[in-house]
Structure formats: C-alpha cells, structure tokens
Design a protein around this nucleic acid. Structure first.
Lengths: 349, 349
DNA sequence: GCATATAATGCAATCGATTGCATAAACCCG
DNA sequence: CGGGTTTATGCAATCGATTGCATTATATGC
C-alpha cells in the first residue's frame, strides 16, 4: 500500500544514501562537516520518506527532554476547579509561551506535590522542569522538600517570605484592598466577603481576606464577622453563601467575592432569586476577570490577574532561565480592577 | 548538602548493591529470576536514594512512549475557543481517563492537522497515538492523509460517511431536532438559530442546522432565512447576533444557539439589554450544557454532550485498543436535553 | 613531486534501561 | 559422589541518534 519501504531510523536513510549514519545524522543537523551536495542529497531522501528523528533517542543522547510538565495540584476529578475558565486560560497562555520556545507541554497526572516529588517526572527524565499552578496554599513543608530536590520549577501564585523558590503572581492583598475601597467609595457600608480561606496565612484566599480587612480599615468601616462566608470553587457554593448571608445579615449592601468569578456568578443568581437588585441593593466585585464578566447580568466588576499581559511569558522564561542554571527572582504583579456595572460605579471613563 | 551521592542510573544502584546492572534492573522490575533477598536489598537501596529509572531510556529500549498527544486543532492564541469551559472539561476527563490507564498526556502545540502529520509527534516517538478534539469540521482530505499514515488516533466529533477513522461524538442532527421540537412544543412559532456554519456538510454547526430544519418541519413551521445568524465562539458574537436579529426580524420568539452555551450567554445579555424577557418574550436553548447553565438568569436549557457519562473513557479506550492493534468502531451518542427555565417549559418533573 | 594542510567521511562509543543467552553455583538423586 | 536440574547472576547486544577521534581523499605550498 505504501510506496515507501520501512524508513524509520537514520540508519535507513544512511543506507539509502549510501553513507554512514554519522554522515546522515550530521547532514540532517546541517553540520558544516558535510559537503553541501551530500547534505542536499540526504535531506531530500529524508524528505521523500517524511523521516523524523526519534526524539526519545536524541533526548537520551543529548540528556534533555525539551519538555515541561504543568502541574495542577488538583485532581482531574475536581470538576469545580476544572470548570474555572481562569485555569484554562493559564493553561493556554503557558502552552503558547512554551511553544514559542520549542518546548513540549506535558500535563501532570499528579494530584499533589507529594506525588510530584515522589513520582517525579523530572528525575525520570520526562521533563526538565515544572510549572505549578497552585492557589499558593500548597503545604510549605512539601514545597521546601521540592526545593531540596533541586528540580527547576516555578509557581503561579502568591509569594511568601523565604519561600526559596520562584513564583509569579499578583498581589492578592493589595488588589483586594483596592476592590473593597472601591466598593466603600460607592457608599457601601456593609461589605461582605466570600472567600475559600480565612485561616491559613499561606492561602490566597486568606491574603485576599487580609486585603479586605485593610480596605475596610482604610474606609473607616467596622469589621463584622457575620459578613464573612466560606466557599468552595463551584458556582453553587456562591449561591449557597448568599442564602446564608440573607438569613444572618440581610442588611449587607455589597459583596467582595474573593474566590473567583464563577462563584460570583452563582452569588448573582442567588441575589436575583431573592429579588435583590444588582447593584442597587447589593454591589458585587469578583476575582479573575474571566471573559464571561462582560456577559453576566449586570456585567461583573472583577480583578484582573493580568494573564494577557505576560504572566505566562514570565513563568516560562523564569523556568527556562532556571533550567539554564541562572538565578531567578520572584515577581509580584499588581492586580487591576476592571470596573463594570455590578459594583455600582458609573462606567463613564 | 545532599547526603546521597550522585545516584542517577541503575548502574549506580547496581554498584552500591554490588551486583550487575542486569540484576539491579530485574530486581526493580520484580523479576522472579532474582532471589527474594537480593530484590529486597536492591529495592531498599533504590528507595533510599529515591531513584527513578530514566523513562526515556526505558521507552527507547521497549519501543514505546506511554504517552498520548491531545490535539486542539485550534491555536492557543484563539482565546475564544480556549474560553469555552466545554473544551476544558473534555481535557480534564480525557486526562483522567488516560491517567487511570497509566498514560501520560502531551498537549499538542500544533494548530492544525497538517502540522500534526508534518511535525508528527508520533513518528518522532513522543506519543503512541493522538486524541483530536475537533469540531469535526477538519478538512476531510487532511484527515484522509492522516489515516494514510497509520497513526492511531481518535476524534471527538461527528461521524461522517466513510471517514475511515474512529470517532466519538453526539448526534448533532438528532439533538438539534429535539431541541427545536421542544421549543415548538412550548408554542414558539418564530424560532431563530445561531450557528457557526450553514454551508459545509462536514461541520458540526451545519449538522445542527440540518437538525433545526428537520425540527421545524416536524413542527410544521416554515423556514425563514432571516432567522439564521452566523456566530464565532465568543460570547460577544452571541450578543452581536441578537442585535442583528432584533433589527431584521424583531418578531422572533425563540432561539436555538447551536454554537455553544457561551454564545448563548452573550445572547441572553443582548436580550436583557433590549428589554426582552426570557423566556416570556424569547425562549432560549444552548449547546454543551456547561456547569454555568445553572447560574445564568434565567438558568439555561441546553443539550448535554454526555461528557460525564463516558465520552472520555470511550475515546481513551478506543485509542488504546487501536494502539494494541485492534479494530475499533465509531460511536455516536444521543444528546440529552437538559430543561431549565430559559426555554419556557415548566420545570416540574 | 613530495610534504603538509584541509575537507569529507566513517568507526565506535555513548546516553540508560532491558533482556536473551551463557555461566556459575547450589541442590537433588540414584 | 558424579551427572543433571534448578536457581541466581552476569555479559553483551539492543533501542536510535549523536559526536570525538581516526582516517582517507583532496588541495595547497615550495
């Protein structure tokens, strides 16, 4: 059926060209040790047989893999997280950045950092480094262990004191503070917060909570424990949170949904169902600034993590620099408040 | 710093254990050629040095790669597509299924089928097969060329006559017909359709359009060219489509958004802005049944592609069977209409 | 015309793990 | 106690591409 006989290896090409495998290999790599004519001839033969060198063999010889593993410290089964467009966007932008640098992207089948260390793609030669998409609340002792292994890796997430590794992320505290101040500026007095963490200093949710507290303080508003509600990453969780608030502190007039826009959308739904008008009765600010923010009803004000503005490139470049043996520094970006209608501000600018 | 000296290869382990590499290799693979005590001893040493065999070397020797490449026939830069939670969900479920079968997942940096054939991960030994997430409208001549290569692959998408490859997807025509009939049953007479393709028989959008036509016919409704609007995959596109309809045929009373739920959400926003009530003035049905359907206002009736019900497993199993040399058949699943409020049906059941 | 520089090519080892075959050691049994 | 098994281990080739070194062929210089 196929006109071309089995041409699978460089040796096959060499045989067809009547040269040694060394010559064939050099020709295909464009070495100047080989005469122009010979190179042309060999290349032509390779082309005709649509020959591709076996990358596994090459990588073995060259001791590299030219690929990076992207780790979700979540289980694939955790559909709530997977349903978050933000994560997907990160995946896409990181993939794009790696591609531009001729690296392949391996998705980790690992669900936590322990397994990463344990099952180590890197030690097994599959990847040269890792990009870890965390919410930053990975157990720091595990992270320390990871640092110990000397595996090159970077983390998308918050920066901690003396973390010992390189991270790229936005300033959760500052961004949140800004969001809350913005709500206060619209005249809101009873601003609630929905977050996924109020206890662990290491968690992004906690840091956003801290920013919330600062924002309240800045605006001279009192803190009320009842205005804090925990959530997961699912839309339903936002819905439930609102119902809780409506029961306990029905006088709230704004919500900062620190968890994610998806949760904010769930919250909006609950408010609609309770006949609360947004933003007249309750103003809302989300986090992540997903595309959908433009199409919620009303459009959702949110904090942009500046994904389009180079986070993926930063992550990728820092990782590759690290692999190349360079020292790299963490970067903390300032979030940007994208004002739409849900926060009650007039969108004139 | 590290107490353990350079232990990178099986030879190192062998040296430490005072045996040959063959013995070490066999011991680590649990061969019964090796005495129990020796095995235990070698395994212990390997453990202590957290040794992992180099998978590249193993794969080279065993002539396999134990990984699959997942191809998006979209560019990473195509943010509209990447923003679709449906694709992400597929990614997650396929990843999960592969993981369960101990395969690694490589993301293709390829943007089209041509490059897949050309740049071929498979010929280069990186992957054993490919899962192609298409909208099924891949150029069929390219697909034929792909079939020619004998590379094992499966496609998530519609089934075509004599396609020559294995696909798994839902019956676009039938599902769409069902959706339209459902709208007609609610008394809607002027049902519009938003789709991304009205011309190419090979495209999913076209097939959904055909289903729409059948549905209209079933319900005895006349076809009106003006009720058909083209869209891309972005929410904005749905918004624009509605504005177009409002200008040209303001009397429409229902829309079947065949492109995706994201587009439907954009459409809802446009309807809100035009003070059209959903579903009283305009009823709406989307496609994909993403999680968010529960949290739109009102909740969006949509067609489920049955992702949770084994599509990923089917794809994975069929691909692995193919790699193992078996003959595999395509599967076409029936879509399921998930009724919520946007279609105007009473949700009593 | 001969020695030396230069260009082109091939040989063989290498990357790290695996495995068929050979060998050595221990054991069995008459 | 010698021949025949059984059990445990090692040797060396292999997967496919790459590259240092050696070798041959050609060119240059005097």
């Amino acid at each position: 059926m196929n006109a071309k006989p089995n041409v699978k290896t460089i040796a096959d090409i060499a045989r067809l060209a009547g040269v040694s495998t060394s010559t064939a290999s050099r020709a295909l790599r464009d070495s100047d040790l080989i005469s122009i004519e010979t190179k042309e001839r060999i290349k032509k033969i390779a082309q005709e047989h649509s020959f591709r060198p076996h990358l596994g063999a090459r990588n073995l010889r060259l001791k590299k893999s030219n690929s990076i593993v992207l780790v979700f410290p979540f289980d694939y089964a955790d559909q709530d997280v997977l349903a978050n467009p933000y994560i997907f966007k990160v995946l896409g932008t990181v993939g794009s950045a790696l591609r531009a640098r001729h690296y392949d992207l391996l998705l980790s089948r690992l669900s936590d950092i322990n397994m990463l260390i344990d099952d180590l793609y890197i030690h097994s030669g599959l990847a040269e480094g890792a990009i870890i998409l965390g919410r930053g609340d990975n157990d720091q002792s595990k992270m320390a262990a990871l640092v110990e292994t000397n595996i090159p890796f970077v983390v998308l997430g918050p920066e901690h004191d003396n973390q010992g590794y390189c991270s790229v992320g936005i300033d959760n505290r500052q961004s949140s503070r800004m969001a809350v101040k913005h709500l206060a500026k619209q005249g809101r007095k009873r601003i609630a917060i929905i977050s996924d963490n109020f206890d662990e200093p290491i968690a992004e949710g906690y840091q956003r909570y801290q920013g919330y507290l600062q924002g309240l303080a800045d605006a001279g508003l009192p803190f009320d424990q009842n205005l804090t509600v925990l959530s997961t990453y699912a839309g339903q969780s936002g819905y439930d949170a609102i119902q809780l608030l409506l029961e306990s502190v029905p006088d709230f007039d704004a919500i900062f949904v620190a968890t994610s826009d998806i949760v904010a959308i769930g919250a909006m739904q609950a408010l609609h169902d309770a006949n609360k008008r947004i933003p007249q009765d309750v103003a809302l600010v989300g986090f992540d600034n997903i595309d959908l923010c433009d199409f919620t009803n009303p459009p959702l004000t949110s904090i942009s993590q500046r994904l389009h503005e180079g986070v993926a490139d930063l992550l990728t470049q820092k990782l590759l620099d690290q692999i190349a043996g360079q020292q790299v520094e963490s970067t903390m970006l300032q979030g940007r408040l994208v004002v739409r209608q849900s926060c009650g501000a007039s969108v004139l600018t």
